[in-house]
Design a protein around this nucleic acid. Structure first.
Lengths: 220, 220
DNA sequence: GTTGTTCATTGACCTGGGTTAAGATGTTGC
DNA sequence: GCAACATCTTAACCCAGGTCAATGAACAAC
């Protein structure tokens, strides 16, 4: 289960000069390991494949093994699990990031999470077997694999740190500052689930805040 | 910030036939990557160094960069941060595991955590610079680096999963079943901190449980 | 238009854990 | 022995957030 943001972000060109679906993935790899050569990329590209999902479709289901790490060409997904019959959202992931139930992917055990498209979404997949092949045939992919695992780890740390050290209000305001597009693209009750509270509680927190502080300074 | 348990566990021989402080580390590496050859190990071993800590000493302090990943030859440490003037324990780590503020280590930024010896402790260090050197001079160390990052990630997942899906009582009972030595070696209030509650709350939860259920079946 | 649906909000009530304070039981050092 | 300290437990009270229910707004389908 992971979301891996590109270090520098990928330029979002709606109409690419070439209609190569792998172009953005390549940029992603090149930023991670600039020294990667043409031959290594050719091998890497040869195993990539594209899948498309409609809004509401499931990319990963609880109970089945997650067999891909997937780069989001465009779209938006949520990762969540069921707990007591309710959804607990772990993360959102939009275009320019990798998504996977990496825990299931690495362990080859059934996923504990769902990954669901919140908008029509297109991904570029690398399968588990292909990745193992790359680790053997393309030596520097081990470096990439290490860097990615490290980045995933760091993202998880940031998540835990903010969960542990910040109030829900702080986390909420950080969220709308760092990812303002979230508010436009996902309903509030999903934000609440992501923050670990009920929609009612989030609503109360917001109104409490906007009453006691600057009435119209910050749009929530 | 991480604790990395060995996959298979390391036999705990109190008196080693040779008094080589690096023997256990070598076993650890060999279990991760059996194909590692003698030359690679020689280079790897050449950068290792030993440090000893007394009970109460700090191995990592909040605010200073963590410069090592450290294998625990023997002893017990806790990793925690200050939040509102209180300690929030993230994890315990005993002999046979690696410990580091890996977030600080990777990013070269000041640590957010403390790592403190709860017993007299001996560690085998690998410094950041040495590790980067190994990544260059010993190619397969990238594989080890990747596997370790992946394992750290998986451990973190297990932690989040149980935090998200289990009640505190379940997490407590799992803890005393999976790591019964913890109860003997750390005070209850640290367990409470680790579970994210106050010592008073843990006390109440335990008494609530032992009253309604089998009075003497499970020793808590 | 009307109906239905989805989502946000608000109120009333409940509960689990925090807080504070007080004992009880060790344990350590002298 | 005694004093000082650490740890665990229990009780009383408080409060943030959960739960349940009602209302309202926005929007789609008909």
């Amino acid at each position: 289960m992971f979301k891996f943001s590109n270090l520098a972000g990928v330029p979002n060109r709606e109409s690419m000069s070439s209609n190569n679906k792998f172009e953005k993935v390549r940029t992603f790899y090149q930023q991670l390991l600039p020294s990667m050569n043409e031959e290594s990329w050719a091998i890497t590209e040869s195993v990539l494949s594209v899948r498309s999902f409609r809004k509401g479709d499931f990319i990963v289901r609880e109970g089945s093994v997650c067999n891909y790490v997937s780069y989001l060409n465009h779209g938006l997904v949520r990762m969540y699990y069921h707990v007591d019959g309710k959804d607990k959202i772990i993360s959102f992931c939009n275009e320019g990031n990798y998504i996977s139930d990496y825990q299931s992917f690495l362990t080859r055990r059934p996923a504990l999470t769902f990954i669901q498209a919140l908008e029509d979404t297109e991904v570029v997949d690398t399968s588990f077997d292909d990745l193992q092949m790359l680790y053997k045939r393309v030596p520097e992919s081990n470096i990439i694999g290490r860097l990615i695992a490290e980045q995933i780890f760091l993202e998880m740390c940031n998540g835990s740190n903010s969960e542990a050290k910040e109030t829900i209000l702080q986390r909420y305001t950080n969220l709308i500052i760092s990812q303002p597009w979230l508010l436009q693209r996902v309903p509030q009750y999903m934000i609440a689930s992501y923050l670990g509270i009920t929609p009612e509680a989030l609503s109360r927190i917001k109104s409490r805040f906007s009453k006691q502080r600057q009435p119209k300074e910050l749009v929530m």
